[in-house]
Nucleic acid binder design. Sequence first.
DNA 1: TCCAGGTTTCCTGTTT
DNA 2: AAAACAGGAAACCTGG
Length: 384
Amino acid sequence: MSSPCLSSVLTNANLTMYQTGVSDVLSRQPSVLPSINTLQISNPAYSSISSQLYRQISPHCWAAENVLDWISDHVESTKFDASTLSLAYCAMDGPTLCQMSRDQMIALFGPQLGPHLHQSLQEHKTKYELQSLSVPELNETCLLLDNFLDNLNFPLLSTIRIGQAEGAVSKRDIEYGDDYDLTGLTMESMTSLGDTEYLSDNQSDSEHSSSSNSGMFGFSNLGSPESGSGESDPEFSYPLISKVHIKTEKGESRLKRPRGRPPKISREHSSSIYENSKKNKHAPRGTHLWEFIRDILIHPERNQGLMKWEDRHEGVFKFLKSEAVAQMWGQKKKNSSMTYEKLSRAMRYYYKREILERVDGRRLVYKFGKNSSGWKIEEIGISM
DNA sequence: TCCAGGTTTCCTGTTT
DNA sequence: AAAACAGGAAACCTGG
């Protein structure tokens, strides 16, 4: 993968092929997704090169990030106030976009940006209808490549991070609470999200409904392992061929060790831990795990059945989809290999600091301690 | 440059 | 048997 353009094309094609449920997300949660800037920045595949990629692809083949790039360009060119634009309206892929009428686009993007976007889209569609011969060939190639890599137990193209060094992120752009988003979870991450104890808010503890997991966020079940436990399955644990390129101040790119204790060399599938896809950027101060957990709990629109209060007044809560929460945390920290096991270790460190209290005998249940804050009803002033 | 805080990762053993 | 829990150890990153 030496050509960034080809890499981006393949990555985007893969995203296009496998991203599902975007319209579902659109219809449900228009206000909870991050801003355009934070999504672009939090997307590891994003780069200045790929941001122009949509110009070379038919709108019908645009992935969500191509749509985002396209919208971003128009936001800039029209001096539109992006802060008034919900990212949820931008988090759709090309095929979804192409199905929208002019009125629908005006309804979504407003009377200023909507017509502009519609006009632009028609121009792009017209342009690429003339080149329709080449696009199916590209899609077919991408599909073949994906199948090929999949059969070799390589990660899907969408899980490979390419040119990360190009996606340099400034610290001020990483604002807590806005840059995690389930729609950005990759294929590899979604294969193991289904916990055995998923419960909707209306269900009792005795009810189990793992079969409904895939539909919670509108993701389809895309080839999860039979075992149902991606974490314990070596084939579904880590991307194998990704590399972490860290751009230094001098501008060169080099391999960098991932954070944490290095894994044992002898472990199967750990061909090289230093080649794992990770950005070793530590979160800025104030971005703590317990705050992340707290914010999921106190924002029902973000919760989506991930966690629930067991005792709202006592601060007792339970993970309903522990792996999904861990993936979200990992996404926030730019760490694709985050698991509930690791997250829970960090949670246990909070016992000593009395940010959390133990809840003995109950699995996946924690309680906020006296050194936590911001979760009490009287503190946040709303009724849960 | 060093240090502290806050994880992240791995590991072994225990409990549910 | 598997998943979750517990906690030690070590590594890493960021901010001060």
